[in-house]
Design a protein around this nucleic acid. Structure first.
Length: 467
RNA sequence: GGCGGCGUAGCCAAGUGGUCAAGGCGGAGGUCUGCAAAACCUCUACUCUCCGGUUCAAAUCCGGACGCCGCCUCCA
């Protein structure tokens, strides 16, 4: 159950120790549902999915909460423009997110709360902050006074001392005592009715950060074991979450902060103006499989900027195909007998390397290398006829165990051949039996154009879909 | 300007003081095959952006240069 993870709070890789093992209470900042999430967003979600799966692999029981931010100024704006109410607008994007989540084989967190369904909890927390003297009101909005929290800036390593308390900063709509103070509750202006809630401190809507504090603590308790998100959230979002939560409860908010680096697309920053904020359906429309996307996102370390390229997607698909091919061939072994020591040892060796890699700050690239090491060894043993049926089962079990973390190594069930494809397949088999190889090759070429690859083996002809 | 990170083969990507610079993709040759495909075997970075330094020893530590990226108020 040993695991070392980098902790943004300390800036070091340190042993991960939950408060009440084997349970891990983990929170992940989820999507803001005003648009379809892009691959960059999904890098974070894939990384946090790898983390929760790795923790389970190591013997922990994970309770993960991932919020859906379904009220926020942009959402309100877009919904109003679309002539929709909040629920109608966000529902569409939530469904899209669920589709993408399933396509990338992300496990569904145990709790997926929506901000709009937790306004009372947020009001409650704000109320507590007011009572403890961490707030002030300006124009009806409630602000958090960062000067009331000495530890402010620790996570982001910001030096707050340069900001003069009391220096008023002009803002078109709100009047803050300090630039870095942030809003807990925004007083209503001209927002639609569906974007307003009642609170003891006035009608309005919650600020951005408060939802994560309120929802995480509701489902996971006042101190979380793990909190994950993209690096861009370190400041101000997570810094503010810490301030609100710690000041509201008087306890540490999070023990371990896990932050995922950003993604580059073809060596360029993602941005709307560059037109490279690809969504999962965008990438699929270009002929790539979601499994390849997931594999590619798994192939770099989460703390390092990753370069996402179309070429890389092809490479990922090819690497994945290699593992799938091994599994197919393991299933075809018929020889009886106990597994040889070579088989047993190859499996154990790979598992040890795999376990070590995961324990070392979730080093998935190295864990993947362990998987491929086993593939190469097994292929060799297979070619030498050294694998029995029992041995094949053992090796497959190792791959499956490792895939409990990666989630793409075992191929999803494929559809059978269509009637047309089946007819061609049968015709080729007939031609081959009659040794009419010219005709057989011609049919094989036609099937390949249809995306079906044939492989003749001593045991017969097998087919697979081209990647 | 302040803070943080990165620069490893054609491409993707581990390694952060001392067996060997992982692994994948691609490429070359060979084995197998009716031919292919798949698989196997061999080869594919004497070197880690560059320049200095520390050390018996550096891709790994220190200094500098160049290039790239992120954060410094609602963007994963």
């Amino acid at each position: 159950m040993n695991m070392r993870l980098h902790n943004t709070l300390t800036g070091r890789v340190e042993p991960f120790e939950p408060q009440a093992p084997p349970e891990v209470r983990m929170y992940v900042c989820g999507p803001t549902v005003y648009d379809r999430a892009h691959v960059g967003n999904f890098r974070t979600f894939v990384a946090s999915d790898l983390l929760r799966r790795a923790l389970r692999y190591k013997g922990y029981r994970v309770k993960e909460v991932m919020n859906l931010t379904d009220v926020e100024d942009r959402i309100i704006g877009f919904a109003r423009d679309a002539g929709s109410d909040l629920r109608g607008f966000t529902e569409r994007h939530i469904r899209a997110f669920e589709e993408d989540r399933a396509a990338l084989r992300l496990e569904r967190p145990e709790v997926v709360p929506r901000a709009t369904e937790h306004v009372p909890e947020m009001v409650d927390l704000i109320q507590r902050l007011i009572e403890r003297g961490h707030t002030y009101t300006a124009d009806g909005s409630v602000y958090f006074r960062i000067g009331s929290f000495p530890e402010y800036g620790r996570l982001a390593r910001l030096d707050v001392s340069g900001i003069k308390p009391g220096a008023r900063v002009d803002s078109d709509r709100y009047d803050k005592e300090d630039v870095r103070d942030f809003v807990l509750w925004k007083a209503k202006h001209d927002e639609p009715e569906w974007a307003q809630w009642d609170a003891p401190f006035g009608r309005g809507r919650p600020g951005w950060h408060i939802e994560c504090s309120a929802m995480s603590m509701k489902y996971l308790g006042e101190t979380l074991d793990l909190h994950a998100g993209g690096v861009d959230l370190i400041f101000p979002h997570h810094e503010n979450e810490i301030a609100q939560s710690a000041c509201g409860t008087g306890r540490p908010f999070v023990r371990h902060w896990f932050h995922v680096q950003h993604l580059l697309i073809e060596n360029e920053t993602m941005s709307k103006s560059k037109g490279n904020t690809f969504t999962i359906p965008d990438i699929v429309a270009r002929g790539h499989r979601p499994e390849a996307i997931r594999y590619l996102l798994c192939s770099g370390h989460y703390r390092k900027t990753m370069n996402f390229t179309w070429e890389g997607l092809h490479q990922a698909a090819a690497a994945l195909e290699r593992v799938h091919g091994l599994l197919t061939r393991l299933g075809e072994v018929t020889r009886e007998g106990a597994p040889g020591t070579e088989v047993v040892e190859a499996g154990l060796r790979a598992r040890r390397a795999f376990d070590d890699a995961l324990a070392d700050d979730l080093n998935t690239p190295e864990a993947l290398a362990a998987v491929h090491g086993l593939v190469t060894e097994t292929n060799g043993l297979l070619a030498a006829g050294a694998v029995t049926r029992e041995g094949a089962g053992l090796l497959r079990a190792h791959v499956e165990a490792m895939d409990s973390v990666f989630g793409v190594l075992v191929a999803a069930g494929e559809d059978g051949l269509s009637t047309e494809e089946q007819a061609l397949y049968d015709a080729r088999q007939g031609a081959r039996r009659k040794r009419e190889f010219g005709r057989a090759d011609e049919i094989r070429g036609r099937l390949e154009k249809l995306g079906v690859v044939l492989e003749d083996t001593p045991q017969g002809t097998r087919w697979r879909r081209k990647r």
